[in-house]
């Protein structure tokens, strides 16, 4: 589906960004990218989405068409002058934009009845739901999520994680999720890449062999969490020794 090899994008004379990233993503997989701040995980997503073109290495996507990549940001990034329904339809071609297509996605994210509201009247969670619908309506092959729930409160965050999973059950969209929340990655992802270093490199890959839906705080997930924490702690120690 998606193959990335020897991908590199660095800033400030190779002190920030990432390098030597190799990964291949299968169709329908949910991939997590975990890492402490400054390890280049957001940059990785910007490169994959095409927002940042200054990279080295190769990115290849099978059955490539133009609108194959959807993106969700940390903030909803809704256009404040458009109503919810027009925001959802934003990425569609002109002919489709004024159709009822948005309705399916409005229902999907549970915002039925809010199509004519403006973003200013939405709560943070509702705005992020609208953003999910906008990212999905173009039916992207791959959905890139850049810490999409990190600005939300704990409860809304859990609701939206469940919403994302329910959408995945229906559409089997391939997703790449950038996060710094280990629990979130464990709850959602098939495989988790742990990035470390500056510039960041893939330090470890953790597979979560557990059927979804998973139970939060499940014994197996806790063990994996301890494992990942250990990985990140090692990184800390290594950095300490290095200095």
């Amino acid at each position: 589906m998606l193959n990335v090899s020897r991908l590199k994008r660095t800033f400030n004379h190779d002190t920030a960004g990432f390098q030597d990233i190799n990964l291949s993503v299968k169709e329908g997989e949910i991939i997590g990218v975990l890492g402490t701040s400054g390890c280049g995980k957001s940059t990785l997503l910007r490169v994959l989405s095409g927002l940042d073109q200054q990279y080295e290495g190769t990115i290849s996507i099978e059955n490539g068409s133009n609108n194959q990549i959807g993106m969700m940001f940390q903030e909803p990034r809704l256009l404040p002058w458009l109503s919810v329904k027009k925001n959802i339809s934003f990425g569609l071609e002109k002919e489709e934009r004024n159709t009822e297509k948005y309705k399916t996605y409005l229902d999907l994210v549970g915002l039925t009845g809010f199509e004519n509201h403006y973003p200013k009247d939405l709560s943070g969670g509702m705005a992020q739901r609208t953003a999910i619908a906008r990212a999905l309506i173009t039916e992207p092959e791959i959905l890139l999520l850049d810490e999409p729930f990190s600005a939300l409160d704990a409860f809304t965050k859990m609701q939206l994680q469940d919403l994302l999973l329910s959408i995945w059950q229906k559409k089997k969209t391939t997703m790449i999720l950038i996060t710094h929340d280990i629990d979130e990655a464990l709850y959602l992802c098939d495989r988790i890449f742990v990035l470390k270093g500056q510039p960041g490199e893939v330090y470890s890959e953790v597979s979560i062999e557990k059927q979804r839906p998973r139970t939060r705080g499940d014994g197996y997930l806790s063990k994996q969490k301890a494992h990942i924490l250990h990985l990140l702690n090692v990184e800390k120690k290594a950095a300490g020794e290095h200095q």
Partner: peptide, 24 residues
């Protein structure tokens, strides 16, 4: 950040102006 939304959807400079820059 809003301009980036337009770039995700591969808007042309004209579309970007009409659909994001002018309303903003």
């Amino acid at each position: 950040k809003l301009i980036e939304v337009g770039r995700i959807y591969h808007l042309t400079p004209y579309q970007l102006t009409k659909r994001i820059i002018l309303p903003a």
